[in-house]
């Protein structure tokens, strides 16, 4: 789990950039990404997953058909951190 705070921080910065708002930098981990939470629409949601793919090499849309990982900031960070850890050499 040592990598996760870093993943969360990077994810927050991506969200702040995509929404042009600093709120995601401070929002609680259980803040929803879509609708009432961060308020991403489907297009910006897709842009988020594209950024996650290029920045972390994790293809959330390809691996998680129901996109459950996209529920909150925390679930997405955990999904990415898990995939990154599984891929790490020796881990």
């Amino acid at each position: 789990m040592t990598g996760q705070p870093d993943v969360t921080g990077q994810l927050r910065r991506i969200l702040a950039e995509l929404t042009d708002d600093s709120a995601p930098l401070e929002a609680p981990l259980d803040t929803a990404l879509l609708r009432d939470g961060i308020g991403l629409d489907s297009l910006r949601g897709a842009a988020l997953l594209a950024r996650v793919h290029s920045q972390f090499g994790v293809d959330v849309a390809g691996e998680d058909l129901n996109l459950d990982a996209m529920a909150t900031i925390g679930t997405l960070a955990a999904f990415i951190a898990h995939r990154v850890a599984v891929r790490a050499p020796g881990g």
Partner: peptide, 12 residues
């Protein structure tokens, strides 16, 4: 890879 926006809307 291109219809991710639709899949996000479906989940929503």
């Amino acid at each position: 890879p291109r219809n991710v926006p639709l899949r996000i809307a479906l989940t929503g």
